[in-house]
Amino acid sequence: MSEIEYKVPVMADMAAQGQSPEVLFWVGCAGSFDERYKQVTRAFVKILNKVGVSFAVLGPEESCTGDPARRAGNEFLFQMQAMSNIQLMNAYEIKKIVTACPHCFNTLKNEYPELGGNYEVIHHSTYLQQLINEGKVKLQGGGEFKGKKITYHDSCYLGRANKVYEAPREVLQALDAELVEMKRCKTKGLCCGAGGAQMFKEPEKGKKDINIERTEEALETGAKIIAAACPFCLTMMADGVKNKEKEAEVAVMDIAELIAKAEGL
């Protein structure tokens, strides 16, 4: 299977050759720098390669969407980031963006239009679901996840913020896995604790950390895999599982990793 040589086309090179990709893969800061999330980025790129999608990344030209600055209250910094990203993407005449980060997704989709950036933005969960529905990703019998108990942790910025609840679940169902829900799911899903720029500060004083509360709930389902679709959730849940000393039994994985693994990529 791994005979394919994976390519990661960069937008600047494509533009220089007068080409334009069908979709821009917005990698995001976590996907670019976080050791764990880089694996998700690579898994997703492998799927794109396998399917033969015409895509590109901005590569070194990409920069933060500004989401954490905006949520922390720094509107100037957010708009500086947003404006320069929009200038860059408009210059490349980007039409469609896919991203594996719900925070990037939300900002690009909902907040860039007011600043002059109008793109069709989709989250990788929806994109994967489409690939599966179109038969471009075929999971023969679900591979190694067949019948395994998987629970899905809703990202707030995907779920409540943008009403994407079903796409990630449908992707998991394609694995032929046993999808088990946590007590609080979908519209009532409990945050992992990292949103609103909490990722970049210590939590305020309290009785418990939010990710521990959520991890306990995930572990109660008896699932062996906690699936996530957000870099912050992935970090928070993985930390929670480590805190509970369950990392040997319970894996925290992104839905793209699960698909790539099932495909043997």
Binding site: V10, C29, F33, D34, V57, G59, P60, E62, S63
Partner: peptide, 16 residues
């Protein structure tokens, strides 16, 4: 460095 973390912008594409 155009990222919330302190990484060199030139390293942004190293994942590939």
């Amino acid at each position: 460095s155009f990222s919330p973390w302190k990484f060199a912008p030139s390293d942004r594409f190293n994942w590939a």
